[in-house]
Nucleic acid binder design. Structure first.
Lengths: 195, 195
DNA sequence: GTGATGACAGATTTCAATATCTGTCAGTCA
DNA sequence: TGACTGACAGATATTGAAATCTGTCATCAC
């Protein structure tokens, strides 16, 4: 029926659209197939299970944030160490907050998907931890951070800022003093990292 | 029927027992009344709604942790500032971890109750924040912490250690490197607080 | 009069019948 | 030949009728 070949990418595009429309509870593989004008059997040719399809679309969503933050990680515009780490954390918080605030339903949808895609989430966190680790390493080499194991420190920084990136806390991201709280926590961490 | 007078305390005792037996989804006011050998109308004489009963039993549960930590807060055994704050955070983590690990079902039960007792939880957090604030104040006065607004700093410390006291993270409290992670985060925070 | 009861209305939950969905695969079509 | 289809079995979700629960209150017992 369709003029274009059926590719994993087109299926993911359609899945996103169907999830946006029906939400995670109601979206079915049949819906996705219908949106593409094919039978659901064809979708199963590209994704072995519905869970695999959901994971792929979740990975894609998380990947966008990873790419955005990779820019900050690689950018030479912000100085090494404290400036870059602060910028990175602020950008992560900002990205999450906008995802949650701009389209709460879609955010809730992906939060639900995330709850049963633990492998994908672990991969995502590993990538973010890698970025933080590199920023810390750079800061240590520039003499702006006290020397310490970058991976371990990255984990601590990430854990200490959970409140500002873990979707479980999304409800408080729009509350009154959240910006001040973010600044207070970030300041505390950066003070803890200085030589 | 019963030999003793029906008091709020006896009702809370029975409610805890019923919750332990049936879980939060199945426990009914009728069950509580049956456990006490009275009609459910009598329970409503002491608690206006089932929600009020649940909140009271939740408050009681959280209160036990508050009392435990108040000991550490008031104790002169640990030195002021870093030592006391570290001891307090460790004890909080320990208390939560044991609650979660020793009786996972009961912990899940109270976690569910907590989800719809936001007022009670806010009060609980305020009390804990007050304790941390006092420890910080004491530390500042002893010259062991850098001067700063104690309430604001307490909030930051509490937020930065969420991973080790928020029930949402209970699943990771029994994982491999959690102790090392706790130490890393605590070290980072204490470094950030020093003068 | 104080404290407890249990019948009751409306709200909520349970349960089983019914419908829909997932994942497979033999067969179709170009 | 290789992408695609659609009928199918077993699993999961929906639905609505029946059962249970919450919260009230007229009445009872001491």
């Amino acid at each position: 029926m369709s003029s274009e070949a059926l590719t994993p990418d087109r299926i993911l595009e359609a899945t996103e659209e169907v999830l946006r429309r029906y939400g995670p509870a109601k979206a079915t593989v049949v819906d996705v197939a219908r949106a593409l004008g094919v039978s659901h059997g064809s979708v199963y040719r590209h994704f072995r299970t519905k869970a695999a399809l959901r994971e792929a679309v979740t990975q894609r969503w998380l990947g966008r944030t990873e790419e955005l933050l990779a820019e900050t990680t690689a950018s030479p515009d912000t100085g090494p160490g404290p400036e870059k780490l602060r910028a990175w954390l602020a950008r992560l918080f900002d990205a999450k907050r906008h995802k949650a605030g701009d389209d709460p339903e879609l955010f809730a949808t992906y939060s639900a998907l995330i709850d049963d895609s633990s492998t994908v989430v672990e991969r995502h966190i590993d990538i973010l931890l890698g970025q933080v680790g590199r920023i810390i390493e750079e800061g240590v080499q520039a003499g702006r951070f006290t020397p310490a194991d970058p991976a371990q420190t990255a984990r601590a920084v990430f854990a200490a800022t959970s409140r500002f990136h873990d979707p479980a806390y999304a409800p408080v991201w729009s509350s009154e003093g959240i910006e001040a709280e973010f600044t207070a926590v970030t300041d505390l961490i950066l003070r803890g990292l200085r030589p």
